[in-house]
Amino acid sequence: MSQLYAYLDELEARSIFIIRESYWKYSNKLACLWSIGKDSTTMVHLMRKAFLGKVPVPVIHIDTGRKFRQIYEFRDTYAAMWGLDLIVARNEPAMQQDILRREGRFSCCNSLKTEALKQIIARKGYEALFVGIRRDEHAIRAKERYFSQRDRDFKWDYGHQAPELWGEYYRSGADSIGHVRVHPLLHWREIDIWRYIRRELLPVVPLYFAKGDSRYRSIGCECCCMPVRSKARSLNSIIRELESTSIAERSGRAQDKEKEYMMQKLRSLGYM
């Protein structure tokens, strides 16, 4: 058990180091993306720890209007409890149209999420964003760096990523056009997140726990998330399940499956 504690301490410290470096560098030009899922909620908790209890960085929820009811409830409860500076970003004109049915998933993700993010960044002038992605989620995300440059059009120039050494040193100058994506959770695995949630007694959206014989392993828009078969009703049983499963975490996420390289294309256009 003590070995597990030391391991979680190490993951935590590496994330907090990156969070503090970013704040030192970008201060009020920095914001955090909070999808209300388990990962970004863990990231918000890491920020509370990094800043000794009080989060000075605004927290943005990209709202597509299609999220689960439980996500909105969770957001409002904990944003108030933790004293977060919550910003809800919506691409209202696009939300009026039924893009999903008319143009398909790729367009829907791109306009309701990526475009909404572009709008809020332009309006607030952010230079850096915390995004809670992890390498073990998806083979494309595994190619990311902690500090990842995006140009004005949000493009990810994955062919020319700057070197990063030991998680301590990275490219120090931003290109002043575009923004920097900071990924403090990049080195965490799904099971690490759950063990950390158990250790730190963090709340999560109840959709992660099984009702009947299924639960959600990854949550987002209600229309594009499918539950997985599971009887895990508690943190302990989720952790036990993950120790033996061979089902991919995002297997219930439609946008990953649609087409080969869809994730690469979404991400190169600025998707989270």
């Binding site: 390498r135 083979a139 994955y158 062919g159 695995r189």
Partner: peptide, 12 residues
């Protein structure tokens, strides 16, 4: 082209 990381089972 670029570095990546994967986890491999080593025992239970």
């Amino acid at each position: 082209l670029d570095t990546t990381q994967v986890f491999c089972k080593a025992g239970r």
